[in-house]
Design a protein around this nucleic acid. Structure first.
Lengths: 144, 144
DNA sequence: AAAATTTAATTGATATATCAATAATTGATA
DNA sequence: TATCAATTATTGATATATCAATTAAATTTT
């Protein structure tokens, strides 16, 4: 059996987890009681007010059921309002409350700092190369 | 607010999740009722029989508590045996059962195929570059 | 229009992630 | 050696992930 450490995908796993933990820690230390995942959903709604939960699940690459539950928490926290969709009653209309909007903005600032710190000392070209490589991996996994 | 899609770390998230879902699907479709996370722990024990749960948590980059719970499931499934450590009673000695060893081997074969499929059409040099870049990101996140 | 299909969202069950608190033991030190 | 500190693992509480099943509504087909 080859060594776990040798594989690129092991490093991908580690990189993802390390960054997530790092980003979450910074948000919490700044005094915001919200998870990165919750923020991503608020952000999606802020950027597209007519978005559906299905759309969100595709954007943040999660299961539909997860989105439902995270949104329940966000409604409970007073960051989001759920209303019936006017023309399609299967759907739900999501709206940010004032405090939801505030938090989204503030955490967004922290997220930008996080990215800058995580990508420190890495040049643009390398980042773009890595992005393309990851797109290729994504495509490979979606085909086979 | 910039677009979610623009960021490299969004792609990292997507790549990680896509690969994980892909790998898990292939293991399940091959008829094995085990998660990738469970397999990683079995593999760690197979490769190092004197390993502690703390060590495992570092290797697979997870919380200690998660490891405890995954191991409980693996013991319940008959893949692992837990015994008291002879000299240090805080520790636990983990041993693979026969069936645990079988499953570890079989899933390992699938994992190798998964990697090959995921990294198809990507040359060695690019993979190595990406690995180094991710190491840099990991280092950046661990410092700041 | 009635029936069948598709779509949007929810729920149940179980697995995993994370933080905080705790228990038990061992190691270090005064 | 008695105390304090560090280590190893567990547990509780809560959040998220995933699959499967379900509900309700809209769309398509017959």
């Amino acid at each position: 059996m080859e060594n776990l450490n040798d594989t690129m995908l092991y490093t991908l796993d580690k990189c993802f987890r390390t960054y997530n933990q790092f980003a979450q820690r910074n948000v919490r230390q700044a005094g915001y009681d919200i998870t990165i995942d919750q923020w991503l959903i608020l952000k999606s709604v802020a950027e597209n007010p007519t978005i559906t939960q299905n759309d969100i699940s595709k954007i943040v690459f999660k299961d539909n059921a997860s989105i439902t539950r995270i949104i329940q928490l966000l409604v409970g926290a007073g960051y989001l309002v759920r209303e019936a969709h006017p023309s399609d009653r299967r759907r739900v209309t999501l709206t940010l409350t004032d405090s939801g909007y505030q938090v989204t903005q503030k955490v967004n600032e922290i997220a930008i700092e996080n990215r800058a710190k995580a990508l420190k000392n890495i040049d643009e070209k390398s980042i773009e190369q890595m992005r393309q490589l990851m797109q290729q991996i994504i495509a490979n996994c979606q085909q086979s």
